[in-house]
Write a protein that binds this DNA or RNA. Structure first.
Lengths: 418, 418
DNA sequence: AAAGTAAATGAATCAGTAA
DNA sequence: GTTACTGATTCATTTACTT
């Protein structure tokens, strides 16, 4: 039963920006058809924890019905609700269903049934880095988002991204033609020069999205367990709706979708069975806070200070690159008296003395076992070389193997099992 | 029927390194049980191209059997073959099933049935960059690999990767303890200094793998249309088998799996119904080739030339960064007479003259419409400034808006529709 | 000068798509 | 179905540079 605490909802038609308490099956059944331009669904995840499948006789005949038995309840719940979602969607609307690896195959089958396989558009992979655990196997680092549209004529705003660093875009900017054999070749003028072909917009966005998981300390976080990054929602809303379109979230939870929709100038309707969730969502909408974390703004790569080129000097020895500290480039896998060895590689623009000083300063409070500086080029160091602190060891990358030099020191291998 | 052209196969037991022609259903039924340590399956992908679902009455009752009708043939084929795979797997063995977004949900249900949901381990996402096209929607850029094991006690060798650039690695290297309130805090010695925790091995490998797509020109390529990169197979084999273990590929195609297995010192058995495929696989095994490209060795980022800091000088105008050419930082989205405008931003270590010279040289043979240099800092350019080539325009980033300056030039917008 | 390294260029491809 | 056409990617080759 719909138990809406929203006055407008009781009169069947809700306004363009609202949060409604109740079961979306009931609420949406009362709405007029074809009002939503974009539906985002992020329901409680399906886990089979307490639902071990019974032991099977593996030689018996294959039966499809068996495959469904354990999923029937879950499937029916969403089939019913996706049906009403389909009904309220405009002809050009899209639906995104957020799920994880335990449910994606079931959801996919239901969506195929409701929307038709021909309206399946994408399986989006949201990938993120997260804390590792001791689990045996690969660290799960993605969730799946299925995208269906109501028809083949759907709203879609292509987002263009940068070319791969290894792409030669000047070649892309050349005209092509067919040669005598019908083969496609780059066109050249009478002087043998390639002929330009104007500008390009970049690479269309793909279906694998690397978006940082919400930082547990971020202000944006409001304490809802499955809260999604606002960046993820913003991307979906930008792709599949236009300003003033209506975004519907039938399981709105803490209201991230609605906040993103509001910020992008879309109308929105959120539904949740929990009164707490609805109140939380409404308070976020009244005072939206978007995380301004460095990570989201400048991208993960901006943290990279020890780049590949620098680290190449260490290729002979095993180490862990340090990306977050401007003074330290790497920590070796070997150690001295159980204490880590910190390394900095001399930059082109700095002297060995400056390099050693930066490393020394960065090592403050780190309880380092040793400090190593890798000298990468010759310089006029006459005056300064004596001033290098005695607890810093300087290795010359140009004269002999760093690996050999380090082996000659009495350094212990790390203890096993760590 | 098994029509093996391999003498050993006819005697039921094949040797430890072999390629057999025939249907894996027949071949594997003849084998002894429990001989395979790792099974990799990469069958022809399931496409519903010629199988449009009939129009449905969307208001009728939900029926599970309908969902399966269109997939039944495909599902039964693999159910039968996965059963025999299961039978030949050792108790500690793993099976990897490679498929794409059109089949992953069906395969998942079958594998749940054969192995049990409790033995589902991972959904691996293989992501890659590839050519784009004019498709409306997101560019498909991943394939799915499902991993199941025969039991909960399975072979697994964790692979460690580098920490994310944003990881606070020096904190990881500190010992932790519980404080009076039972909260986990970083341990400090009597002087308040943090105590080191030795070295770490890095982050356990996750389930999203960015591995370059096999290039059309790669020497590794043998002309098989769906050939997979050896690196992908090497990773799977390293993770889930040990040296001398046996790797089975029931749909071996051109034999990439077998080549990777051989290179890693594993035994292998390949099966394919096509005689051509078997012969191709055998010839690759006799003379294995693996690409050692710069991209694989140094990573995509090693191509990067113009970093964020440099490109920030162009924030007012729209452009495409150029990463592959050391002399050019960007190509503007605007053009002159249909020819591209090439830009280089002055580095801290170079003069305007040097900057212009590098750009001019790099522009050779590029049919540029104009060459722009962005001056970033003052210098003693008295003598050199006159020597700057006349076809290079110098903009001063410090004096006034670059965007405004460029707008004042008579530059055409790119033609629409490109 | 010769050899070896690094950078720039070109070619081939389409578990491509759209009409 | 069949045909026509697309364009980013990556590796191999060629050219440039360094020692």
């Amino acid at each position: 039963m719909a138990s809406s605490r929203n006055l407008q909802a009781k009169t069947c038609q809700v306004p363009d920006t609202t949060v409604v308490e109740g079961d979306c099956l009931d609420i949406l059944s009362e709405q007029r058809a074809h009002f939503a331009d974009l539906v985002y669904i992020d329901p409680p995840f399906f886990t089979q924890k307490h639902h071990k499948l019974k032991t099977k006789d593996r030689s018996r005949t294959f039966s499809f019905s068996d495959l469904w038995d354990s999923h029937e309840e879950y499937a029916r719940f969403f089939f019913d609700r996706l049906q009403v979602c389909w009904q309220v969607m405009r002809p050009t609307a899209s639906l995104y269903f957020h799920c994880d690896r335990n449910a994606v195959h079931i959801v996919r089958m239901i969506l195929d049934e409701v929307f038709g396989n021909e309206n399946f558009r994408s399986e989006i992979i949201w990938t993120y880095r997260r804390w590792s655990n001791s689990r045996r196997g690969l660290l799960p680092a993605h969730q799946n988002i299925l995208c269906y549209t109501k028809s083949s004529d759907f709203t879609f705003n292509t987002i263009y991204t940068e070319y791969s660093p290894s792409t030669n875009i000047d070649q892309i900017l050349q005209q092509r033609e067919r040669d005598a054999d019908g083969k496609s070749v780059y066109k050249r003028d009478s002087h043998g020069q390639p002929i330009a072909n104007g500008s390009k917009r970049g690479v269309p966005l793909g279906d694998v999205w690397d978006i940082p998981y919400l930082n547990p300390k971020a202000r944006e976080r409001v304490g809802y367990p499955t809260q999604k990054p606002i960046l993820l929602l913003e991307r979906i809303i930008s792709l599949s709706s236009n300003p003033c379109d209506l975004v519907l979230d039938p399981f709105c939870g803490s209201g991230t979708t609605l906040v993103a929709a509001k910020m992008l100038g879309r109308k929105y309707m959120g539904i949740d069975t929990s009164r707490d969730a609805c109140e939380l969502a409404q308070s976020r909408l009244d005072n939206p806070i978007k995380s301004e974390s460095n990570l989201l703004q400048s991208g993960r790569e901006s943290y990279r200070n020890a780049d590949e080129e620098i680290l190449r000097f260490l290729h002979e020895i095993s180490f862990a690159p340090v990306q977050r500290n401007r003074g330290i480039d790497a920590i070796l896998d070997r150690e001295i008296d159980g204490k880590p060895i910190l390394v900095r590689i001399q930059r082109q623009s700095e002297t060995v003395y400056e390099c050693a000083t930066k490393l020394l300063k960065a090592s403050n409070g780190k309880d380092a076992g040793a400090l190593f500086v890798i000298k990468t080029h010759d310089e006029n160091t006459l005056g300064f070389f004596d001033a290098i602190p005695s607890n810093v060891t300087v290795f010359d990358s140009t004269s002999y193997s760093i690996g050999e030099a380090i082996k000659q020191l009495n350094i212990h291998e790390p203890l096993a099992g760590r």
